[in-house]
Simulated assay, not measured.
Amino acid sequence: MRDWLIGLGVALACLIASWALMVLLARRLPPGVLRDLAAFIPDCLTTVRRLRKDPRVPRRAKIAIVFAGLWLASPIDLIPEFLPVIGPLDDIVVVALALRYAGRQVPREVLLAAWPGEPRLLLRLLGPGTTTGPTSGAPADR
Rank of each mutant, 00 (worst) to 15 (best):
M1P: 10
D3R: 15
W4T: 13
G7Y: 07
G9A: 15
G9P: 09
V10Q: 10
A11F: 06
A13I: 10
C14D: 10
A17C: 04
A20M: 03
A20Y: 02
M22F: 01
P30Q: 11
V33K: 04
L34I: 00
R35A: 08
A39G: 12
I41V: 15
C44A: 15
L45A: 13
T47G: 05
T47V: 12
V48E: 00
R49Q: 12
R49G: 10
R50N: 12
R50Q: 13
L51N: 06
D54R: 10
A61C: 03
K62E: 06
I65H: 03
I65D: 09
F67K: 03
L70A: 09
L70R: 09
D77M: 00
D77A: 07
I79L: 14
F82P: 03
L83N: 01
P84T: 11
G87P: 00
P88T: 02
D90M: 06
I92M: 13
V93N: 00
R100F: 07
Y101R: 04
W115A: 04
P116E: 11
P119L: 08
L121S: 13
L122F: 09
L122V: 13
L125N: 05
L125H: 09
P128T: 09
G129A: 11
T130L: 02
T131F: 06
T132H: 05
T135H: 11
A138Y: 04
A138K: 07
P139Q: 11
